[in-house]
């Protein structure tokens, strides 16, 4: 149970950091703020990209920034609902 909730929580915290930084943050500060190991961060980062919760954007100097997609915003909005449902039905 703890593992599953942790996964949802880590995803939430990563997305929340991006949102709190005006929806634009570089990968290194995101890793620092998320406070997980570099290896775990890479796995979660890939998952978020694959699930289209975040997307990568590049500025004029070709520096990479991470922003939330609409789906990412919806995840933040529905996070408590998802947790509540999972708890209610012991999933």
């Amino acid at each position: 149970m703890a593992k599953k909730r942790d996964r949802l929580e880590i995803i939430y915290s990563m997305l929340k950091v991006i949102q709190d930084k005006n929806n634009s943050i570089k990968p290194t500060p995101l890793l620092r703020f998320t406070n997980i190991s570099s290896q775990s961060f890479q796995e979660y980062y890939k998952e978020l990209l694959d699930k289209e919760l975040i997307r990568e954007e590049f500025d004029k100097k070709n520096k990479k920034y991470i922003t939330l997609t609409d789906k990412g915003f919806r995840y933040i909005e529905k996070y408590n609902l998802i947790l509540g449902f999972i708890d209610e039905f012991e999933l």
Binding site: K4, K71, I82, E90, L91
Partner: peptide, 15 residues
């Protein structure tokens, strides 16, 4: 559907 698509949760998938 929506909460599953957002979370990809295994238990929700089977539910």
């Amino acid at each position: 559907k929506e909460i599953y698509e957002l979370s990809g949760h295994k238990g929700l998938f089977f539910f």
